[in-house]
Each structure stands twice: as C-alpha cells, then as structure tokens.
C-alpha cells in the first residue's frame, strides 16, 4: 500500500512537470495572445493541481487545505483566462492566423467539384439566387444540388 502511494506521487510529480513544460513552450512558441492564453491555462490547472495531488497523497499537508487550494485553482483559472481574453479583445489586439497549411505549397487548395463545374461553364454566382438560401417552402425541392453549391460558395 505504501508502494502504491509512492507510485502515485511519482506519477503525479512527473506528469505535472511535463504539463508545466508544455505550457511554457506554448507560451513561447504560439503566435497570438489568445493561443498563449490557451497554453498558460494548462500550467495552472494541470501542473499545480497534480503537484497538490502528490502532496496530499504523501500526507505532507492537511487534507482540507490542499482541497481548498485545488478548488480555488480550478475556479480561478478559467475566470482569469476569460478576463484576459476579453481585455485583449477590447484593447483591439488582432487575431493572427494560428493554423498553417503545409500542404498548400505542394497542392494548392482547390474549390469543390460542383463549383469548378460552374466556373468552367461560366455561370458565376449572381445576387438573385442569394434569397434561395433561407427559404423554407417545399415547392422547390427539385434544385437541391444547386442550392447546395451556392451554400458552399457563400
């Protein structure tokens, strides 16, 4: 039983340290304020909470004190992330492109095949058909495919 508790302590310490490393790496590497907030939340909720679980399992601290700190961290982490993201958005800090398309260098992104067929036939999207997107009348069920094309194009 003692060995089981020590194994739990070892696993919690190693996992919490790995989460802290991942959080700081995200803080350094990610391109944006909002994505950095996403990375920093990992350190608060997973890193410190797992270390507290280790401290509680080893019997180094009181039970209620560590539970109080865990509950405080789990409540305060999302609150703080939400507050900072709202403040950044109100300050007008722009959102950068966080997803990079590596395959676009070799294979340029292509339109869906229906749109390609329409473009080859010279039938571009005109403004008159835009009202067909939000209709609900069942009397025009025959041109479902064309509506699908315009919905994907819009």
């Amino acid at each position: 039983m003692e060995l089981l508790f020590q194994l739990i302590v070892l696993l919690a310490v190693v996992t919490g340290t790995l989460f802290s490393i991942i959080g700081v790496m995200g803080m350094i590497r990610l391109p944006d304020v909002y994505t950095r907030l996403h990375a920093v939340g990992k350190v608060s909720v997973f890193g410190v909470v797992l270390l507290l679980v280790a401290a509680k399992t080893l019997g180094a601290v009181d039970f209620g004190k560590s539970i109080l700190l865990v509950v405080f961290l789990v409540i305060a982490g999302p609150t703080l992330t939400h507050s900072l993201a709202a403040a950044a958005y109100r300050m007008g800090i722009p959102v950068r492109q966080a997803v990079r398309n590596d395959l676009a260098v070799k294979f340029p992104p292509a339109a869906p095949p229906e749109v390609q067929r329409l473009l080859e036939n010279g039938a571009g999207p005109d403004d008159g058909d835009e009202t067909r997107l939000d209709r609900e009348s069942p009397d025009r069920e025959d041109d479902e495919g064309e509506t699908e094309v315009h919905r994907r194009d819009a």
Binding site: G23, V24, M27, V33, R36, V40, V43, L84, I93
Partner: peptide
Amino acid sequence: NAIDRLIAVDLTGTL
C-alpha cells in the same frame, strides 16, 4: 503588448 506581459506575469506567479 501589455496583455502578453500580463499573461507572462501570471505564468510566473503560477510557477
């Protein structure tokens, strides 16, 4: 910017 530094200060406190 300011929010970036504030996030880093909070991360320091957590660590």
